[in-house]
Amino acid sequence: MSGRSPTTEGPLARALLIAAALGFLGFFLLLPLLTVFSEALRQGAGPFLDALHTADALAAIRLTLLIAAISVPLNVAFGIAASWAITKFQFPGKALLITLIDLPFSVSPVVSGLIFVLLFGANGLFGAWLAEHDLKIIFAVPGIVLATVFITFPFVARELIPLMLEQGKDDEEAAISLGANGWQTFWHVTLPNTAGACSMVCCCATRAPWASLARSRSSRAICGARPTRCRSISRFSTTSTISSAPSRSPLSLRCSRW
């Protein structure tokens, strides 16, 4: 007497869909991942682990954590302000504002690297002024922080906007009607309501600088077996363009002279 629920598919359709999804993932994600491991461990686990334990790698990890500690709070603060303004109020040009927030997603890392060199490089807009005051941004922590903030800029807002949109503003209006002021409402109502997403966002935002830094560092470790390619790897992505030591990156060396 058992029938099938009207909101699911038959066992055959279900099996086919799962198989198709897993097949796609296996082909496009799992296989490349396996290749990475097989390449990295081709010479055994020893050289691979050695590469990870160098002073270079440890310094990189420390730097990543420092950058995350600076850039994540900045972006979380921005993301919350932006999603508050966008979801709780109506104003003209909202779609334009959202698009501008999305923009760093679509800007090629090559372009964003170029931007910061144009701004803060030796011959950049602020280059002379920076040199005069003996300040270093490019090839230093401030530059990496800036680049990271730029790249991870949309993450928080992008995560929070749909969530806040769905929650509406009933809770906030209730709090205001009970006599809470704006900050109290924010601290006791909005923030707890979005805490789950906020913490997830922090993970995402931390991962981004980690990934972009790891790009230059760990790829060096992994492609130990292919020395000819290492040179080029270190110059990918914004972060590495302006963070890697000049001697290792012909591109950033030239940019800094420009």
């Binding site: 603060a77 921005f78 302000a81 932006a82 508050w84 303004a85 966008i86 709780k88 109020f89 104003f91 504002l97 501008l100 927030i101 923009l103 760093p104 800007v107 372009v111 964003s112 170029l114 931007i115 910061f116 144009l118 701004l119 807009l125 800036l146 903030v149 730029f150 800029f153 503003k169 906030e172 209006e173 205001i176 002021n181 704006g182 409402t185 924010f186």
Partner: peptide, 30 residues
């Protein structure tokens, strides 16, 4: 009407200008 529009919108716009718009503008300038 909820409070905080001026503050949140102003902060959003300022930060957006500083981090995204000015850097991108240099590209156009160049």
């Amino acid at each position: 009407m909820l409070p905080g529009f001026g503050l949140s919108f102003g902060f959003t716009l300022a930060w957006l200008t500083l981090i995204v718009l000015i850097p991108l503008a240099t590209i156009f300038l160049k």
